[in-house]
Structures are given as structure tokens and as C-alpha cells.
Amino acid sequence: MARVADPHAMAPAKAGPTRTAPPRMPPEFPLQGRYRAYTLFDATGAVYLLLGLLALRLVWALGSGDAAWRSAMESLGNPLYLLFHALAFASVLFVGVRFFRLFPKAQPPKIGPLRPPPQPVIHALLYAAWLAVSALMIAILAGGIFG
């Protein structure tokens, strides 16, 4: 049985003349059917928030000197960090694949006088940028270039 949704969800700023039934959550929510991917996409927010905070810790350590950097990097070898980063890597791939599929569909038919490129072209460009930047980041961080 679908539960009642928040009564103010999707409510207009001013009540209209047409009376409508209270909104209800779809019966598939949160983890059935197409709602599974929807809910998981939102849940990756927790992973991204932690990734941002972890990156802040690393950059802060880098600015604090050799010992702080070394200690921060050594802590990443903890199994819990490794497990988190494995989950984070899967989350980032999931977000990329889902968002890059949605992004071309969300484009307006016209931007000023210009029409956006066809959807498959936008999709391909996003993947090209993703692959190119990732390859560059991996090459730099792993010491392949700018040694």
C-alpha cells in the first residue's frame, strides 16, 4: 500500500482553483522498479559528501607539510578506507553513466538562436570528456606525466 506523501510536495506557491487529491508515494518507492536507480542515485550523495570531506583532509594535510601528508596517505591504507573508496568508485561510475544518459534529454530545444547538437552527439561528447579527463588525471597522479 502506497503511503501518503508529504502534503506540501509539489505544492504551488498559491493554491489554485482546482482541488486535487493529496499526493501519494508510488508503490514501487523506494527500491523497486525504476525507483531503485532513482533512490540509489540520490543516496550517492552521502558518498560524494564524504569524498569532498576526505579530499579536504588530504589537501589540508598537503599544506601542513611532509609528515602530515605522509600520515594522511598512510591512513588511506586502512581497510575501511579501501572499502569506502571501492564503494565510492562504483558510485562515481554509476552517477556518471546515469547522469550522462539523462543530460542530453534535459537540454532545451533552443538556446538563444542555436539548437543544441543531437542527443547522441552530446552523449558521446560527455563520454569523451569523461574518458579524456580521467586518463589525464590517472596519468598525472600515477606519475606517468609531469614527473
Binding site: 588530504l58 569523461w130 579527463v133 588525471m137 597522479l141
Partner: peptide, 11 residues
């Protein structure tokens, strides 16, 4: 786009 390489190498 940035996190993919970062998480893979640093994490």
C-alpha cells in the same frame, strides 16, 4: 569527471 581518476589512484 574529476573524481573518477582521483578515487581510483589516490583512494
Amino acid at each position: 569527471i574529476l573524481l573518477t581518476g582521483w578515487v581510483l589512484v589516490v583512494g
